[in-house]
Nucleic acid binder design. Sequence first.
DNA 1: CTCCTGTGCTACAATAAATGTAGCAAGACG
DNA 2: CGTCTTGCTACATTTATTGTAGCACAGGAG
Lengths: 113, 113
Amino acid sequence: MPKQAPAMKKRAVRGSRTGRPVMALLDLLGRRWTLRILWELREGPLTSRALRTACDEASPTVMQTRLSELREAGLIELLPGDGYGLTGLGQELNETFLPLHRFAERWSRQMQD
Amino acid sequence: MPKQAPAMKKRAVRGSRTGRPVMALLDLLGRRWTLRILWELREGPLTSRALRTACDEASPTVMQTRLSELREAGLIELLPGDGYGLTGLGQELNETFLPLHRFAERWSRQMQD
DNA sequence: CTCCTGTGCTACAATAAATGTAGCAAGACG
DNA sequence: CGTCTTGCTACATTTATTGTAGCACAGGAG
């Protein structure tokens, strides 16, 4: 079991060495399913299995990997009994993506023409 | 479904079949280097090689793949002489991510404590 | 207690994606 | 011509993701 108390010990987020936090964040968010997981949690906590179902049956391997990474990053947390939920920081990040839904609609419409 | 000209030809964006455009967008943005590319273009066009340099020497293979995908998605375009630049739609999307930089700073600070 | 069910999580082989190195054709400039 | 730089590709190696199966643990019935 990869027990690692402090965040980012063995595998730093790519770009974190550049000293530009936004690069580390972009790399973290750029991993498969990460954005989707945060998105699916926007309305409340979900169990790991409900999350897998919501994410089009993503494999449990990568799902657990992402959940660990997001927990290390302090964006989500495991609430005993309720599954996974956004932390305060995670909610803050998610609000950044709220305009994304509206944009996606416009984007999709423009792509069909 | 209406005719879709060049976009989404052989490999549809994952989630596009759900009919929820935001899923397709999240999948597209969730591919490696995609967010970073959009970010690096925020202040103006870059040639493909300058873009590779800016993106920590990402391999040309995946860089070209991403550039093609982003072009198909109508978010960037190849400006002869100036390299790659954001389209109007791409700029619009990028503005969605502007608060990300400020958030990343806060996030990084909180992670160090 | 035993038998369910659901949780978080892991092993492992197969497949898909990304990397690293090299190189191409086309255009601009000398 | 020769030498740049551009966008872009081939290909073998390495890494990430998938799919299937399963584990240990914690309630709730029965």
